[in-house]
Design a protein around this nucleic acid. Structure first.
Length: 712
DNA sequence: GATATCCCTATTTTT
DNA sequence: TAGGGATATC
């Protein structure tokens, strides 16, 4: 263990002087926000309800810390997405002449990655280790499973994705594998020993080949900081202030990391709202936030309750929603925006009609001056938006979808990235596997022996030694592959050139592999090359893609300079922390939200309820909760749905029912026959869904008389 | 040993 | 509805 020489840090000690502050904190913030932003040293817990200016407070705190002498490089801001981190540092920089840009920050995973790149060797990993995303990790598990003949028994052995979630679940909840299996995967209890062996094999494999999955980033960092006190001291010394956003969604591992990061200076600020904890599946526990004062002595607690986002009617609904929870949440949000439209509950005949309703309303809002980008459509899970996506495409309404397919999850992108990864880390057997099997004539077996050849026999893994086990069938391609890779490796190629070189090589393989739809996929490859230009190194490019994935639809849209900012479609999870003028919550069905899967888990319904609460509290002025009354399922055809239990018992003066009427439909009340063909898209142009907002304050709001001529 | 084809099944949320 | 497993064919 290295000898430690402690340098006096007086030089760095923040002055703490409040004499020459350039920002009028007391004027910009309310009393509690001010207290939070300007709190002194030590642990600080900010319990902030939805829309209470939590982000604003955090930004001012950043600025305050910098103004009172803390160097920005010594502040660590941990957030849930990189977008949130960039957003906050940018806003803080605006307040303070750019100084806050140097604040370090990002997600837990990204920050841990930074630490690990520095110290990986101490853990027996190479510094250029590869980060596996969930799909990569599952692929690795699949390879190991097949090789080790784990599933040879009679019982069904879990699939690769299940294996990954199982192991990940154990890590994130800080449980033993046995506990996780008993609690969450009881059907595999009899396989416990085999699963344990498989997990050990997976761990060994990752270490041998320089691979880390998402969980490793957290777990290995913690291991590093726990076992090597010099490293811990070194890392924590650089964290004079640690700020954590969305603390209610941290899990046991992350809470422990926060402790370690702040173990030298003891300055931690965490912000969160227990009623908005929605990441239980990742091991988050809303009670974490209340444990904070027990974990950190002398915690100062500040509560923010004044809501600046929503109108009173929306808050009333939010309060009624959260009241339904088993556990009571101590929420007393209040606002001064007492006026406002009632949130509306909108049943639609079917998913198609629901989509038309939303599209129509979005256009009306735009005519009334609400920009598309200030409107969001939220849903429980990604596929809930399919109908709407089709509708929006037909009407040429630009949108971005968050929480759908990510660019780097698309198979063709993974193919290209595998080649880059192999150059970056030639031990990365998982990527070799992928790259090699693209070549016609190379399957799992040949790939395996080739990998052994390159990584063991040759001194340079990117050359093929004589006598490598290859046959003429694919020899030419293989040589081409290796020369491409060597070119990519050479020092003077930019990341863009590297990607281009791989694309040239990949093109014929690509067209062969995706014979039916490669023209559709091709633009993504171009985008990838474009993205590469923004990155200074291959390694950074790769990790930024895995840790901060790009939404596929964001690229479809090709947002040019003067294009209209698009409508936002988002899973509720991905909408966390955002706000919009008007929110549509679609597919509010029992079985969707709450999800059918959640009903089986203890505490599952409450978690879904919090999710619902998050959705509702995103809205500033307008809120429409809609659902289709019938749905189609493969086997059964159409069937009647049940509205979400969360809206069922709400009185009309909290959530106002609205009836949708087709403009040119014959006066037909409820389409109770499953085959009711009259609502199907017989006419694309004439329908008039909900009456405009204005008719909704007086009496039954179902008169479509004022449905104006529609501009399409 | 690689690949083409067919059938079955499970189906949330994210770093 | 796609992705995985099993089977048949090259």
């Amino acid at each position: 263990m290295a000898r430690r020489i402690v340098l006096s840090s007086d030089r760095d000690e923040p002055s703490g002087s409040t004499e020459d502050l350039t920002i009028e904190y007391a004027e910009a913030l309310n009393e509690q926000q001010y207290a939070a932003a300007t709190a002194g040293k030590g642990p600080l817990l900010i319990v902030a309800g939805a829309g209470t200016g939590k982000t604003r407070t955090l930004i001012y705190r950043l600025a305050y810390l910098v103004e009172t002498g803390t160097r920005p490089q010594q502040i660590v801001l941990l957030t849930f997405t990189r977008r949130a981190a960039n957003d906050m540092t940018a806003r803080a920089s605006n307040l303070l002449d750019g100084r806050c840009e140097k604040v370090r920050g990002g997600t837990f995973h990204a920050f841990c990655l930074e630490v690990l790149r520095q110290h990986a060797e101490a853990l027996g990993f190479p510094r250029n280790f590869t980060v596996l995303d969930a799909a990569d990790a599952a692929d690795v598990l699949s390879v190991i499973r097949t090789r080790g003949e784990y599933g040879d028994g009679e019982e069904r052995f879990p699939q690769k994705n299940t294996l990954y979630s199982m192991f990940s679940s154990a890590t994130n909840r800080d449980e033993t594998l046995g506990e996780t299996i008993t609690k969450r995967y009881p059907q595999f209890t009899s396989l416990h020993a085999e699963l344990k062996a498989l997990r050990d094999a997976y761990r060994r494999y990752k270490k041998e080949h320089g691979l880390m999955d998402f969980d490793d980033l957290l777990e290995r960092t913690l291991e590093l900081l726990e076992t090597d006190d010099d490293v811990r001291h070194q890392v924590a010394s650089r964290c004079r202030h640690v700020l954590v956003d969305e603390y209610q969604d941290t899990n046991a591992l992350q809470a422990e990391l926060v402790k370690k990061f702040s173990s030298v200076h003891g300055n931690v600020t965490v912000v969160g709202d227990d009623a908005q904890s929605i990441y239980k599946f990742r091991g988050a526990d809303f009670r974490n936030i209340f444990r904070f004062p027990d974990e950190f002595d002398d915690t100062e607690v500040v509560k923010l309750e004044h809501n600046y986002r929503s109108t009173q009617p929306i808050l009333d609904l939010a309060n009624r929603v959260i009241e339904q929870a088993e556990r009571s949440y101590d929420k007393t949000l209040f606002t001064e925006k007492t006026e406002g439209e009632l949130p509306a509950l909108v049943p639609a005949a079917d998913g198609d009609m629901e989509a038309r309703f939303v599209a129509e309303m979005v256009l009306r809002l735009r005519e009334d001056g609400v920009p598309l980008s200030d409107v969001a459509v939220l849903f429980r899970s990604s596929h809930n938006a399919y109908d709407l996506e089709v509708e929006l495409n037909q009407r040429n309404i630009p949108f971005v979808k968050y929480g759908g397919m990510k660019l780097n999850e698309a198979a063709h992108i993974k193919d290209v990235l595998a080649h880059l990864k192999v150059v970056e880390n030639p031990q990365d057997a998982a990527s070799w596997n992928r790259a090699l099997q693209l070549i016609h004539g190379i399957g799992p077996k040949t790939a395996q022996s080739l990998i052994e050849w390159t990584t063991e026999a040759a001194e340079d893994p990117l050359t093929l030694g004589d006598g490598a086990p290859f046959s003429d069938r694919y020899a030419a391609r293989l040589k081409q592959l290796f020369s491409t890779l060597r070119h990519v490796r050479s020092d003077d190629t930019s990341v863009t050139e590297q990607v281009e070189a791989i694309l040239d090589y990949y093109q014929p393989l690509f067209e062969n592999k995706y014979a039916d739809d490669h023209p559709k996929r091709a633009p993504d490859l171009e985008h990838l090359a474009g993205l590469a230009a923004n990155h200074e190194s291959r390694q950074r490019f790769l990790s930024s893609l895995t840790l901060d994935p790009i939404e596929l639809t964001a690229l479809d849209q090709e947002t040019g300079e003067d294009d209209e900012p698009p409508l936002v479609l988002s899973t509720i999870h991905s909408a966390k922390g955002l706000e919009f003028h008007t929110v549509f919550l679609i597919r509010a069905l029992d079985g969707t939200i709450p999800s059918r899967h959640a009903l089986r888990e203890p505490g599952g319904v409450d978690e879904e309820l919090r999710l619902f609460y998050v959705a509702v509290t995103r809205a500033e002025e307008g809120l429409f909760i809609s659902y289709p009354m019938t749905q189609y399922r493969r086997g059964q055809g159409e069937y009647m749905t049940t509205p979400s239990r969360f809206v069922e018992d709400l009185p009309d003066d909290v959530l106002e029912p609205v009836q949708l009427v087709e403009e040119d439909a014959v006066d037909e009340n409820a389409p109770d026959a499953p085959e009711g063909g009259d609502t199907l898209p017989s006419s694309r142009n004439g329908e008039a869904p909900a009456p405009p907002e204005s008719t909704r304050d007086d009496g039954p709001p179902d008169d479509p008389a004022d449905a104006d001529g529609l501009p399409f």
